[in-house]
């Protein structure tokens, strides 16, 4: 899933300080799963904005709406009847959401309510970790099913750097050295020789470096 975190409430208050009618829009996709942008969080943010409005003596009207997904135009249409009543829209979906809303409702001022962090998963309740860098040419099978592009701080493809120590990365004791894990796993699987092969420079054309990406599936295009 795409993992995000709430923006500090202070930052959001500053963003929307000039608006009195604010619509908070959530998303039932990834951000609901990572507990940052679903109906529950819409309620919390909306309530917080109302409490603040009350405190400041400002007559703030805060609407709440959670869409099935914000990354599909068909669901965004649902706001057509509602959005007209508001001056500002806070989207608490990943970075895709506020942009789709901006494009669909060009006259509205749209604000991001979360910081989009990475593609990853829940490693324990309340803890998410990065797993994929979206490079566009997956090669995790070469590395024991573990991705050194997303999970090595230097995205090294030919083994651990000199900073690997006790299974941890040189940047922090809180960061696992993925290469330590790759080596262990490949050794256990009796595939160490595969790691001895020289991996040439990767083509980053399929990654963000190649420019903004688009995918077209001809059989689906109407």
């Amino acid at each position: 899933m795409i993992v995000a975190e709430s923006k500090p409430i202070k930052e959001l208050l500053e963003m929307v300080k000039d608006f009195k009618k604010i619509l908070v829009v959530g998303c039932k996709g990834c951000v609901t799963v990572c507990n940052v942008g679903g109906a529950k969080e819409v309620g919390i943010l909306a309530s917080s904005l109302r409490i603040h409005g009350r405190k400041e003596g400002r007559d703030v009207v805060v609407g709440e709406h959670t869409l099935e997904r914000q990354c599909d135009p068909e669901y965004i249409d649902e706001l057509e009847e509602i959005v007209g009543d508001y001056d500002a829209v806070i989207s608490i979906a990943c970075g895709v959401g506020p942009q789709f809303l901006s494009e669909r409702y060009p006259e509205k001022k749209v604000f991001p309510g979360v910081n989009t962090k990475f593609m990853g998963g829940a490693v324990e309740h309340g803890v998410w970790a990065e797993r994929c860098a979206g490079c566009g040419t997956c090669a995790i099978h070469l590395f024991g099913g573990l991705c050194p592009i997303a999970r090595c701080s230097k995205s090294l493809l030919n083994g651990p750097c000199g900073g690997s120590s006790h299974g941890k990365c040189e940047i922090s004791k809180d960061v696992d050295c993925i290469w330590d894990m790759i080596v262990n796993k490949m050794t256990e699987q009796g595939r160490l020789s595969e790691l001895l092969e020289f991996r040439p420079p990767k083509s980053w054309t399929t990654a963000r470096d190649g420019g903004p990406r688009k995918m077209i599936r001809e059989e689906l295009v109407k």
Partner: peptide, 13 residues
Amino acid sequence: DHQSFGNHPESKN
């Protein structure tokens, strides 16, 4: 210029 114009289009920018 973006690297895609050059002779190492595979590179990271």
